[in-house]
Amino acid sequence: MLGPGAADVAFEVNGHPASVHVPPHHTLLDALRDELGLTGAKRVCDEGTCGACTVLVDGRPTYSCMTLAVACEGRSIETVEGLAHDGQLDPVQQAFIATDAYQCGFCTPGQIMSVVALLRANKAPTAEDVHRAVAGNLCRCGAYPGIVEAALRAARARRR
């Protein structure tokens, strides 16, 4: 194979240090799923159109299939696996369950990460804000009404 060989990359995943040895063209999604066994983020299109691979990179919702793993050196990555603490689900996760904001659940990890990022930036989002936040997260099952409801519900729960 041409080009530089595999390199060590160190970053933080869900608050813990992690390092992977990956070729430079491998994506963050490859690293998470194949190297670290974090299969919550899903590969649906692998080209930045569906949002199923969304994770937070330094707090920003990011398509991990469009992000090179080597570009994540020193960054902080958050995935759906890291949201619950001590067996306690994040309010967004709880709201997704309460409003049935999924069907097959395949897009769900990505949807949840987009909503989590929204609620950190905006404590009282409108439905319009939610639409904008998850506009890049497709759902083939059409769970959108529940997703919007879940985001608004989680925001309310957080404010209390």
Binding site: R33, D34, G37, L38, T39, G40, A41, K42, R43, T79, V80, E81, L83, A84, L89, Q93, F96, I97, A98, D100, Y102, G105, F106, T108, P109, I112
Partner: peptide
């Protein structure tokens, strides 16, 4: 009735064929 397998879906724990290693 909320789904009894809801927690597995919202935590990324739900295992799909794609996820098998």
């Amino acid at each position: 009735t909320p789904r009894i397998d809801g927690a597995s879906k919202v935590t990324g724990r739900a295992r799909y064929t794609h996820d098998l290693r």
